[in-house]
Amino acid sequence: MAIDNEFYYTPSIVANKHKLQHVQDVASLVLGVASGIMSLESINGFVFYFIGITLTNLLFYIICTEQQPYKFFKNPLHEIFIKDLFNNISGYIMMWCLIYALVKTNS
């Protein structure tokens, strides 16, 4: 491996991370709403979350990095797809339970 003597600009790294975080926050909450509306139960809901968040990350990767991901992230595949996979699951479960309960109130 080549010696990494490249200088990085920390405010940009932080800004990119915040933008990715924003997209993932919105996506996880909205996916929770959708799974509540579809009244998914047990493992189906979690499968739906992982598929949905991975598709979101894929959209982010395609649209935002403009075919040159290494200019925006040090390790793009890991940082975008794997690192924050479980961070937003609590928000997802919250919206899932709330909307599920609302939709099923009168049944």
């Binding site: 490249e6 990085y8 600009y9 940009s12 925006f72």
Partner: peptide, 8 residues
Amino acid sequence: KYLKFIKM
């Protein structure tokens, strides 16, 4: 357009 360059 969307993100910021990280290299100095």
